[in-house]
């Protein structure tokens, strides 16, 4: 897949990953994307150009707005990230399981 290198390179930037995460929730214009990231529209446009070149997003011709949405490859990446977020939370709660088991043991020990 010739676009694979470009996709990995595009994904190496945290802002671009965050833009993809936003697009996972639905189509957005440059203006809508610029707002939560406290970035100028030209800065966002530069990131979008990279993402588009990597085949991670597609843009619709609609006047000057050109809304963006995820390309299927981008959706697959977002799925992978959500899985990782779940994994990070899961690691916390696995530790909590151990803490709860230890609390139970010390409670039993405390009983006559």
């Amino acid at each position: 897949m010739p676009e694979l290198d470009a996709a990995f390179s595009a994904l190496a930037d945290p802002t671009r990953r965050a833009i993809l995460a936003r697009l996972a929730l639905g189509e957005a214009t440059v203006m809508e994307l610029a707002r939560p990231f406290a970035m100028t529209q030209p800065a966002v446009s530069r990131h979008l150009k990279v993402l588009e070149g990597a085949g991670l997003i597609v843009r619709r011709a609609e006047g000057a707005k050109r809304p963006c949405r995820l390309a299927p490859a981008g959706i697959a990446e977002i799925d992978r990230w959500l899985t990782m977020l779940r994994a990070a939370l899961a690691a916390n709660y696995d530790r909590l399981d151990e803490v709860l088991a230890a609390m139970n043991r010390s409670k039993r020990k405390g009983k006559p």
Partner: peptide
């Protein structure tokens, strides 16, 4: 979206 994205970063 931004919160989920930063969680993903972690």
């Amino acid at each position: 979206a931004a919160m989920l994205a930063s969680g993903m970063e972690q």
